[in-house]
Simulated scan of single mutants.
Amino acid sequence: MSIEANKALVERYYHELVSEQRIDLLEELVAEDAADETAVGPGGTGTREDFREHLRVLWSTVKDVKATVEDLVAEGDLVIAYWRIEGVHVGPVFGVPGTGRSFTGHSISRLTIRDGKVVRYNVLPDRLGIIRQLTPAAV
């Protein structure tokens, strides 16, 4: 696939799968043997089900979640996404119980694409920035 096709896939991943909660797209966008490194660790092996669980947890802890890609850089089969997450904190996030507060956070993700599907995913969120918004009196 071309670099532009890989970027388009990542845009769909965040817009349609994450924000629109289109779990029906999981098989189309993520390979069966894909590794969600947030679940299996860097270099680990996994399955598409790890992605399903990651999304289930996100959707159950952040109401009205919206993921917006702000920038993409790609080379070969690798896409780096700088993206923003917004929503209402209703369940545990980074150890903070649900507060009902709205928040915005930024993350950088690394996605590897093979044959038009995500095969490896890792994300580095701004945990401190999000925790500060969720617990303003504690920080």
Rank of each mutant, 00 (worst) to 15 (best):
S2H: 07
S2W: 09
I3H: 10
I3V: 15
A5G: 07
A8Y: 04
L9C: 07
V10K: 02
V10F: 04
R12K: 15
R12A: 15
Y13V: 00
Y13N: 04
E16R: 08
L17K: 02
L17Y: 01
S19W: 01
S19V: 03
Q21H: 15
R22I: 01
D24C: 06
E27F: 05
L29M: 10
E32S: 11
E32N: 07
A34I: 02
A34F: 00
E37S: 05
V40G: 03
G41F: 09
G41Q: 09
T45L: 12
T45H: 14
G46Q: 05
D50A: 12
D50R: 01
F51W: 12
F51N: 04
R52E: 04
E53I: 01
H54L: 12
V57S: 01
V57D: 02
V57E: 00
L58T: 06
W59C: 03
S60Y: 03
S60W: 02
S60D: 14
S60A: 13
S60I: 05
V62M: 13
K63I: 00
V65E: 11
V65Y: 09
K66V: 15
T68Q: 11
T68H: 03
E70S: 00
D71G: 00
D71I: 01
V73G: 00
A74T: 08
A74N: 09
A74H: 07
D77A: 13
I80N: 00
A81E: 02
Y82V: 13
I85K: 06
V88M: 11
V88D: 07
H89P: 01
V90L: 08
V90W: 04
P92A: 14
P92K: 12
V93T: 09
G95Q: 03
G95E: 04
G98C: 10
G98S: 10
G98D: 03
G100T: 06
R101Q: 10
R101E: 06
S102Q: 14
T104W: 02
S107R: 03
S107N: 13
I108K: 01
L111A: 13
T112E: 14
D115I: 08
V118R: 02
R120M: 00
L124V: 14
P125I: 01
L128E: 12
L128W: 05
G129P: 06
G129A: 08
L134V: 06
T135W: 02
T135L: 14
A138I: 07
V139I: 10
